[in-house]
Amino acid sequence: MLQVNNIEVIYMNIIQVLRGVSLEVGDGKIIALLGANGAGKTTTLKAISGLLKTEEGEVTDGSIVFDGKRIDRYGPVEIAATGITQVMEGRRVLGHLSVEENLMVFAHNRKDRKEVKGDIEKVFEYFPKIKTLRRQTSGYLSGGEQQMMVIGRGLMARPKLMLLDEPSLGLAPLLVQEIYEIIRRINAEQKMAILLVEQNARAALGIADYGYVMENGRVVLSGAADMLKGNEDVQEFYMGLSVAGSKKSYREFKHYRRKKKWVT
């Protein structure tokens, strides 16, 4: 469905952020994109959704193909029309609008106005917490409620592929679990492919089919989610577990840091 082939991204004609990233998202799959801060995860998403062009970034090499169409030269509006919606990092609510208005903004280009009403109810079915808040000013919702609204907002465009950027950011662990459970449901019921960017590797690999690990603008490791969960390096660096799979002990006087095997 989506193929990203060896893309390079340069910001402002000088700062190279991606140095050859390839990944693939199959129909109806959940793909996790993991990595530390500054690895280039968000940039990859923005390259796919075209939002890069609003930030003076540019895909200088490689190609992005969605449903057989090459989209890396398209602007964000055209890409949205092909069926890709990005749920941006940090919630980005339209603060002075109500919850319902936030949802409606993402249904802007839909021709089937009657079904839009039904879709709003469907969003509230997935996120019952925000149903009672539908007429509230969204800027005053709690962080969890805002995150739910923003994911629901993405659903309103009825995308074939949803790009989710750090849905767990700044949320309590219980809430993260809840939101991930709903993401899994959405994926299963709507047959919507999801490309999930996360720092919380444990949560992301819990629902993903396949995962990629990025570092310094490159994909350094990829594999089925179960494989990645068992990988010692992933455990050490993204889940905080030591070799034996047990919690790492910081009590011992000295411990030797594992070296990442993939570092290039």
Binding site: P76, R92, L97, E101, M104, F106, R153
Partner: peptide, 23 residues
Amino acid sequence: TRSGLAMMATAEDEQVVQSAGIK
């Protein structure tokens, strides 16, 4: 109206509005 809502949304966050497919 839809256009009115798009205008209010644009006033809030241009990038989000573009990701919603609004010119």
